[in-house]
């Protein structure tokens, strides 16, 4: 979204290539490969502890892979100059300083990436927090924090978006709002990678699915394919992840 892309054919693509991350002896991510394309909501599914959050941290260059690599727009995240123009992420809605206002939380981000402060007001408006912009984030409900995290992800108008369990702890209205937002972002041609351990929610939001278990890839396919092969997405998920647990336990 800024200047000529270095790899036009990989614009908007997230490539995870034989990615492995060990913490001590535990393999949080184990030889994982998949690709996320623009124009879709890609659901990133797996039981708790499957390695979804770790994979996202590796994509964002927060953790260093033990082996393999993750590329966004054909490049390692750490090599992006002003990354918020290319990638937006919500990893943890609680990652806020309690005495800093919502406005200032977004403004420091905008300044770090040369984003016009006008955008701060725009995204606050978009997520419905304009009225509490000057309030300290410490007093926000979880739902408001999720909205602020989404505002932060949208700040640089990026082509690639990553959301880690964004609907956890939201009320039904909030869940509905996020679902519609994800779908509209993908419809604008953006890449949306959305993690969850809730299959039922994903069935309503995603059109492509990557399922992981014990750090390994179980399946990478379309929602349509899964619903044709199984009665429902839910039973597909249960059948597939049950297999992974057996496979993992036998290892």
């Amino acid at each position: 979204m800024c200047g000529a892309p270095a790899f036009p054919d990989r614009e908007g693509v997230i490539e995870v290539k034989q990615l492995t991350k060990r913490y001590g002896r535990a393999r949080a991510v184990d030889d994982l490969s998949f690709t996320v394309q623009p124009g879709h909501v890609t659901g990133f599914l797996g039981p708790n502890g499957a390695g979804k959050s770790t994979t996202m941290r590796l994509i964002l260059g927060l953790d260093t892979p033990t082996s393999g690599e993750a590329l966004v727009n054909g490049r390692r995240y750490a090599t992006l100059g002003r990354p918020l123009h290319e990638v937006g992420a919500l990893l943890d809605a609680n990652a806020l300083h309690p005495t800093r206002s919502a406005y200032n939380h977004l403004l420091w981000m905008a300044r770090s990436n040369g984003i016009d402060p006008v955008r701060v007001a725009e995204v606050l408006e978009q997520v419905g927090l304009a009225g509490v912009a000057r309030k300290k984030a410490g007093g926000f409900s979880l739902g408001m924090k999720q909205r602020l995290g989404i505002a932060a992800a949208l700040l640089g108008d990026p082509g690639v978006l990553l959301f880690d369990e964004p609907v956890n702890g939201l009320d039904p209205d909030g869940v509905r709002w996020i679902r519609d937002l994800m779908r509209s972002l993908a419809a604008e041609g953006r890449t949306v990678l959305l993690s969850s351990h809730l299959m039922s929610e994903m069935a309503l939001t995603a059109d492509r699915i990557v399922i992981v278990g014990r750090g390994r890839l179980i399946v990478e396919t379309s929602v349509k394919d899964l619903t044709e092969r199984y009665d429902s997405l839910e039973s597909a998920y249960l059948a597939l992840t049950a297999g992974s647990v057996e496979y993992g336990a036998a290892r």
Partner: peptide
């Protein structure tokens, strides 16, 4: 330490990976 304590170190490094 406030960045590590609150978790904002991750948004910070996502905004500025250098």
């Amino acid at each position: 330490t406030a960045e590590y304590g609150t978790g904002t170190i991750r948004p910070s490094l996502t905004a500025v990976p250098r």
